[in-house]
Each structure stands twice: as C-alpha cells, then as structure tokens.
Design a protein around this nucleic acid. Structure first.
Lengths: 335, 335
DNA sequence: AACGATTGTGCATGCGCATGCACGCCTCTA
DNA sequence: TAGAGGCGTGCATGCGCATGCACAATCGTT
C-alpha cells in the first residue's frame, strides 16, 4: 500500500463537495445530479483516486472475495478448474483469494486464515477437510463448498461428479471389452474420489460374479501411474486391463506399458481412465475414459455460491453431475 | 462476512481488559504480561475470535496480499508457476489474490482492480501489459513484477529466462543435428517470449549462413501445435525439423507428424521445444528442449518482491536466468 | 526510606469509507 | 400563493483495529 494514495476526502475537497457525495458517486447507489457527478469524477480522475476496498468492506460487511483452497494446483485438471472458477467468479463480480495446500500448510490451517480476509465464501478442492472446519465456517456463517469432494458424516455443500456410477461404468466397459484380469490404480485411500469410484468399480465386477480386481495405490500423478504399472506387471504379467482413477495416471500407465514393458495398448492391455482431461484425446494416447463435466460442475458451483450468498439461511445442497463413457482406442467394447 | 463475528471489543469485555490490550496480544508487538495474555487468549478461544484483516490493514497500510495476474492459467507450465509462486508467497507470510486475464477482462482492466484490494505488490505473467499500467503502479508506489515477460520502452521489474540465448541454442542444436529445412512454430507476435526466442533462433541460423527458416504462428496450445504442423507439411513436405517456441506446441506437432502425417520423429523430422515442461520427458515424446529454470525464476521473483517491499525507493531490476539445452530423443546432435 | 527507571495497561484517536438522518431547494397542485 | 412532496447534498457516526500517549504499579538503587 502506498502512503500517498488519495482518498474520498481529497476528491471531495477538490470537487468542492462532501466526502459522502464522493462515496455516493462511486457506489452509485443514490440520486446524484449529473452536474456534481461529473465534477466528482473529474476530480477523481485528476487525483487518480480509487476507492479502498478494505475500508468499504469494513462498512458493508461484504468483501466480494471468494477463497479457493486447492492442493496440487498444477496436477491433472486442477488448473482447468481453477481457471474456469476464477473466470466465472470474476464475471459475477467476485475476486479470488487463492490458497495452496502444501505439506507445511494443510487445508485446516488455510481455511481459518481465509476467514481473516473476510471471504464471502470458500470453495475447496482439497481432499482433506476436517468436519470441524465445516463447523467453523458454519459458525462464521460463511458458505463452504466442496468441489469434487465429499466429506464424511457431515452436511456440507458439495458439487461432485457421479463418481460411484462412473466407477461402475468403467467396470462394465472393461467386462464388455473382454478384460479378464484387471487392476485398479487408485489414489490415496482417504480421498473421496478414490473411495467412490473404487466402490462403483468393484461393485460393477461383483455384479457379474467376476473376481475382485487387484488395487494398487498411486497419488494421481503421471509418474505414479507409470511406476505403479511397472510394479503391477512385475508381480503378475498376465494382467490384461487397467482402470485408473485418473486420466493422468492412466496415461502414465500406458507409457509404462508401451515404452517400458514392451506391451501393446489396447491389443495386450486395455486401459480406461477417469476425468477426460485434455490430453486424454491426444492421438498418442486415445484414452477411453469416464468424462466428468467440469464446465457444468463449475457453473453449478458458482450458481450454488450465489444462492448461498443471497439466502444465508439456505440449507445445504449436495449436487451430483452426470458422467459419460467416452470410448476411444485404449479400450473398446465388443458388442 | 458474517454479522455475528466477535470483535476485539467482545474479547476485551469477556477478559476484563481494554480493546487495545487484545490488539496487542494478537499483533504480539509489545510487552504484555503472561497472565493477561493467557486471559485474553482464553476469552478469544471461547468466542472463536479472529482479527479482521481488513480493519488491520486499514491502519497498518499493509495488506500482506500479493496480486497475481495470469492468462491461460491452465496452459503449458503456468500452473506450475502459479503453484510455486503461491507456495513461496505463503511461506513468506503473504496471500495471493488471483486474477484471470480473459477476453472480457484484459490485464489492463485487472491491474487497477488489484490496486483496489490494496495489494502490497503485483506479479503478472500476462503477455500484454501496457506501459501506462506500469506508470499507474509506480504512481501508487506498488511494486510490479513481470514474470517471464518483457515490456518495451519501459523500465519495470522483470524476471525472465534467457530467451534470446535459448533460441540461439536451439538453432545451433538443429544445425548440429543435421536439420536442413527447418520451420519455427511461434506464439503470437506480440509476446515477448516469441520475439526473443525467435530473434535468437533466426540469428543462430544466420550465423551459419543458412536460409531463414519459415515461421508459422500458433497460440502456445497443444492443439495449435498439432494444427500448424499439419499446415506446414501440407505446404512443404520436405521439411525436416521443427523448433517450437513452447514444449506444448512441440508435443502437439510430434503427434501430428507421427499419427496424422505418418512421419517418424526423429528419423524423418527432428523436433526441439522450449520450457521443459513435465510431460516433455515422457517416454511417449522424449522431447529435446531448452529448459528454463522455473524454480529459480520463482525464487528470484519472491526475493525481488521482498526487496521491493523492504526498500520502497529501490530501483528497478531486470533479472535474467540461464537456460540449458536438454537432449532427449526427438532431436540429437551428431558430433 | 525515598526516588527514578521500568513494565503493563487503558484512553483516545484515526485509518477510508457507507449510510441514516436532517435540511434546503425546487416543482407541482389546489 | 401557500403548502405538500420530491430531490440532492451535507453532517455525523461507526465499521474493527493499531498505536501514541499518559499513568499506575512494580522494581531496583542509594
């Protein structure tokens, strides 16, 4: 901040009006004669005046700030979510305060400090948010929305994809594609996407009385997909199918299969992912996957957010968006 | 914001002290006896008190907020930059206000509104920042740092890679690799990275008295790399080398060559990129590239920022970080 | 035993703005 | 021509906090 910033008071003096008049011009709330409006705007221009949002928020109790708490900002399709959310929010007149979950700073550390900045609402994609945090936000009457995440034993606003059915669809597709010995590459067990997609997946197999596929844990990154695939085939080279809980891991696995293990995809091993990230469609991969509709999720999120802000007493919503099976070349269903 | 948030006043009342004492405890500035400190903290805990950063900033003239203005947040290695910057900034006690440049909102629109939020400094990776904006920031005494960008005819703080030499190195590598008929896939002409990398690249060729390679304009995206490569070979199928100004476009071009045009990389066409994004090293691509040191750039940026904040009268700095040639399989130098 | 130095706390004020209230002026109607 | 009813503006106040100053209590010193 600068010590030499001009204030509404300065503008008022120069325009020969009261500070309150300047304020009225800039919050264009009430009736101001065109003449004084111009006078004020002129003076403001000359002084390069800009209203101080902090002072304004202090009075109005509205920061027009939305907090976003994310982990692994650069991974998978987090960047797309962030970009679209930010865009949407800006269009709606909000600005974004971004928090990066790291080893040092957990979501539970970050959420309170968002509160210090008076965010009007908070969206998080972090996998680990304690139920207590939800309580804190409830206490502060600040809407909290979990994006692409659930949280156990707690009613919180939630926008997610239909992970359970997506998992099920993946299992069905694999079965129809003729996969006999499948492996499931998951994320950490405490993430809701892994839980839900995995549950749907396993139930899909069991429905057909097939043996439960082996599960191996990755961390959603390309490299972990690669490594875990190597490990899998090291243990059992008769596997013929992979369901990866994220496209990025699927792609890592494909590279391992093709360029490290000397296997062909889909001839030797069929692979299906989840998310449909840009990159899944690349001709180098042509990944069959379960698509989640990020645009829709973002739109629903911002709409929900606005509803929360308009009606503070609104009850919690849990929005689930549909997923679709997208068939490309890495796994194809034989009819 | 909530209407029912407890204030320092509330805490003071409950602890039986003055508001100023509460303030002193939370800004742990001056001497407070251990007894009252505990009394205050206890009361604060009971009331779930958190200091209001806006009110605080209004007095201290320090928001501890840093603005980041970005375009194409999800593209290329922007996400990595954002992630690392945010992390570093958080470690240094700052929080990040994120602005997304879009068609609707240009950097020149966004920069002033960052000022409204009293950011202590601003970092932008946006390619288009008008010199006037730099003046505005100077007037408001708010440090402005361009990341990976230059700006013409203006002295602004700048942290960038040695794009010019990188371009030159790319040319040299291509020549040594035996490329005779090269093409240059650039970004939009008004971006400084395209200008500098391109200039270095062309000068590298001219040094060897080789013909000036053809230039074609992309937009830094995977798809544009793909499309532009198709177009290139459509015009002239005798080309045998590509320098793409970004890895993402290089990768798009490789996919087009291999999977659309039926060419082999590197046997038929050699490809070199720029950036060394994660993904360049994938076995599916093994992209030879010019690496920029993002970590170093981020560190330099945050250090520069702190210097600016400490010494408001400090003069502008232009920091250039070295680049390195990373050889993988898509282009290899014959000795 | 008396006095200056030190430490801990309260009081008052102001940061820059929004907003309820009062008031003066003008227009319209009867 | 007088009164009613807008409309436009100024005044005063408070949002939640930090901080300079004053002052009481405690300590150490001679």
């Amino acid at each position: 901040m600068s010590q030499s910033r001009s204030t509404a008071e300065d503008v008022a003096r120069r325009a020969g009006v009261a500070q309150s008049t300047v304020s009225r011009v800039f919050s264009n709330s009430s009736r101001i004669s065109e003449a004084t409006r111009q006078k004020v705007l002129q003076a403001a221009r000359e002084l390069a005046y800009r209203p101080n949002n902090f002072a304004r928020s202090l009075v109005t109790k509205q920061s027009l700030l939305v907090g976003i708490v994310m982990e692994r900002i650069s991974t998978a399709f987090s960047p797309y979510v962030l970009e679209k959310l930010t865009l949407k929010l800006q269009e709606s007149g909000y600005n974004v305060l971004l928090f990066n979950v790291s080893q040092a700073l957990s979501a539970d550390d970050l959420l309170p400090s968002a509160l210090d900045y008076q965010v009007d609402a908070l969206i998080t994609t972090s996998s680990v948010v304690s139920p207590e945090m939800a309580d804190v936000y409830a206490k502060f009457k600040t809407p909290l929305i979990l994006f692409n995440r659930r949280i156990n034993n707690q009613t919180v606003n939630t926008v997610s994809a239909d992970d359970y059915h997506g998992g099920k669809m993946a299992a069905e597709a694999m079965i129809k594609a003729g996969v006999k010995r499948a492996a499931f590459i998951s994320g950490p067990e405490n993430t809701s996407t892994t839980q839900d997609r995995g549950q749907g997946f396993f139930e899909g197999w069991e429905l057909q009385d097939f043996a439960r596929p082996r599960q191996i844990v990755g961390d959603y990154s390309y490299q972990s997909g690669f490594d875990v695939a190597c490990q899998l085939w090291d243990d059992d080279s008769t596997l013929d199918g992979i369901f990866a809980v994220s496209d990025l891991m699927a792609v890592g696995a494909i590279d391992a299969l093709r360029h490290k293990l000397g296997l062909r995809v889909p001839e030797d091993v069929q692979v299906i992912g989840f998310d449909d990230i840009p990159g899944a469609a690349r001709l180098a991969y042509q990944l069959t996957t379960i698509r989640i509709d990020v645009d829709l999720m973002v739109n629903k999120t911002v709409e929900l957010l606005q509803r929360c802000l308009t009606d503070k007493t609104k009850e919690v919503e849990q929005i689930v968006t549909p997923v679709t099976y997208v068939e490309r070349k890495s796994l194809v269903v034989k009819i």
